[in-house]
Design a protein around this nucleic acid. Structure first.
Lengths: 135, 135
DNA sequence: AACTTAGTTGACGTTAACGTCAACTTTGTT
DNA sequence: AACAAAGTTGACGTTAACGTCAACTAAGTT
């Protein structure tokens, strides 16, 4: 294992670093979200794949399906010399931005409600201690 | 069907209004997220259930599981006279707020990246038309 | 050379969130 | 009364996203 690896990681190393299982990483690959090089039969993960994995995990945290995430990743791979591709790209990017902004609005609504709940809870506790101070 | 219904809806009416299937609504009930009254055997949905359903759907848009959503809905039902409940409630509310804020951060990161992608795409199109203008 | 230690490829199992019947009962209509 | 429409309860099917094995192989170790 004293072979020079530089920026490269094995699947279990990447898994630990990212906090997921190797199985999950292979699964993402089977869905076309990752395409690691191979050293013989063994998968080798480099900077690019690490970044992609982070994007995948972030997408998951936002509740997107792996299919959606795949389309998102594709946005980074468009050929800037193909006019048609760029036009399609722009459309998809704009759609994605719209979705994310409405999701953000949902979050803000929820946060406001939770602030309300919290305020009520604090008020209830105040009442309680005021009540206790009576005796 | 000319019975007075007032604020009340039948399951298919509620389903249409909310854009989901009746099956989904029954499913949410089976998970304890909704508890409609009954007129004999038929479910009756009133203002409260409609609001709850909206909260469920918003939770889904944010990528939460029905279990998570159930805990979220519980936050609205805490008894303000029970000290222990309120303390627990505050803790849960604060956790939820934290999660949502980090989710919001993920969204903002993604939005920034997408802006970058868009800018690159627009630049590529500019180059292209400039190129075309050469001839 | 014999072994342990990753890593690899199937292949089947599992959970969440419904979809899709089938078989009834209940209502309102003709 | 007879009937179509809507609602109800099972119960089985389906998809996504992995978990869990089993059986092999390649790579260093002793």
């Amino acid at each position: 294992m004293t072979t020079f690896l530089g920026d490269m990681l094995t699947i279990t190393e990447l898994a630990r670093e990212a906090g997921v299982t190797a199985r999950a990483i292979r699964f993402y690959e089977s869905k076309g979200l990752l395409t690691p090089r191979r050293a013989g039969t063994t998968r080798i993960y480099t900077h690019r794949e690490r970044g992609r994995l982070q994007l995948i995990l972030r997408g998951k945290r936002l509740g997107f399906s792996l299919t959606d995430i795949g389309e998102y990743l594709d946005l980074y791979d468009a050929d800037p010399t193909q006019h048609d591709q760029i036009v399609l790209l722009l459309d998809k990017v704009n759609n994605r931005i719209g979705e994310l902004e409405s999701q953000k609005a949902d979050i803000d609504d929820t946060l406001k409600e939770l602030s309300g709940v919290r305020a009520q809870a604090l008020a209830a506790m105040d009442d309680e201690s005021a009540q206790a101070a009576q005796f």
